[in-house]
Amino acid sequence: MRARVFVTLKRSVLDPQGKAIQGALETLGYPEVEEVRVGKVIEITLKDGERSAARARLEEMCRRLLANPVIEDYRVEFEAEPSGARETEPTSAKDPA
């Protein structure tokens, strides 16, 4: 079972990398870009098991290590099953933005 963890800076936190990229995109002729926020994607392969239990464990990993709740939000997504089913839901409770 494969999961992706998205870690992004909270909306209330200035993202200087995003600002720099936005400036570069403007220079390249993309004035329609209103905002850029940079985050991390962490791909995690898990031993097969129940997905809801895996989600709870992944969220615990986020809280304990993968994200710093002072400045970051996180979201857990499971990679599409062969059937094409995909499960996505935002999981950070504190600052949904």
Binding site: P16, A20, N68, V70, I71
Partner: peptide, 17 residues
């Protein structure tokens, strides 16, 4: 110490990168 929660707050990349 910040990551360990022994002090309050967090560190971000320098504003000028």
């Amino acid at each position: 110490l910040l990551e360990a929660g022994l002090l309050p707050g967090a560190m971000l990349r320098n504003r000028a990168l």
